[in-house]
Amino acid sequence: MHNDLAQIGTPCCDLPQTKRGHERRLALLLSANELFLERGYDAVSLDDIVQHAGGSKASIYKYFGNKEGLFTAICDYRCEQFSKDICEPFNVNTDDLRTYLIQTLMNFKTQILRFENAAFIRLILEQAQRSPKLALYIHEQGPKHVQLTIASALTKADEYGLIDCKQPIYAAQFYFGIIRHIEWPVLMSVDIQDNDQEIYDYFSYCVDRFLQGHQKV
């Protein structure tokens, strides 16, 4: 995780050219991530981050531009990891579509139930209300990217005659509606009562209905 996080760049800002610079930048990212989750974005100052990580505010300005740039760099990494851990590209030659769709939902459930992921999503939602630019950026990097991956899978399945899906974007949006009854309670800190088997059975039922709606006539 730490090495990957260190490689996330910030537009118009420098990436360190030395090992010491990489270590300093990484320390700032890790400290900011920890403090934002612990206290919330507004309650954390640049001085707090520097005190926690060491170094100076000059390093923050050099590598991230400002506090928002630092937060965006963390969001980039977390969105990338979240998306990667949820769904991989669909291989029409080796993957069973039903299994792929159910497993993707199970992966989503696993990620959203992780405390740190849920806490950071809440933090993003809070900040997005104040910054439309950030909200759009995070949507493009996170939810939209995942939807497009599923839309691509549905497109391939249509091209190979597995289903009839001429509106894959709409279908992908509809498909991810299956997870909402888990996603929203988690984001509102409500405990999920269903066990893994119950959730799997629910996903299987919904995916079967989804695929029936896209059967070739």
Rank of each mutant, 00 (worst) to 15 (best):
F90G: 08
A118K: 03
Q103I: 03
T99V: 15
Q111R: 10
S83C: 14
K109F: 10
L123G: 04
C87V: 13
D85G: 09
K84N: 11
F82T: 06
N117P: 06
L101R: 03
S131Q: 01
C87Q: 11
R78V: 11
V92N: 07
F120A: 05
P89Y: 04
D95E: 08
T72Q: 12
T94C: 05
E80S: 14
L101A: 07
F90W: 11
L101W: 06
M106H: 10
V92W: 13
D85Y: 08
L101F: 04
L123Q: 07
F120R: 03
S131P: 02
R78H: 10
R122N: 07
Q129S: 07
T72R: 15
P89W: 07
R98Q: 15
C79I: 07
N91A: 12
F82W: 12
C79Q: 10
A73R: 09
R78D: 08
C87F: 11
K84H: 13
I124F: 08
Y100P: 06
L113S: 15
E80W: 00
D85I: 00
T104Q: 03
R130M: 10
Q129M: 14
I124C: 14
P132A: 08
L101K: 03
E80V: 09
I112E: 02
R130I: 00
C75L: 00
L101P: 02
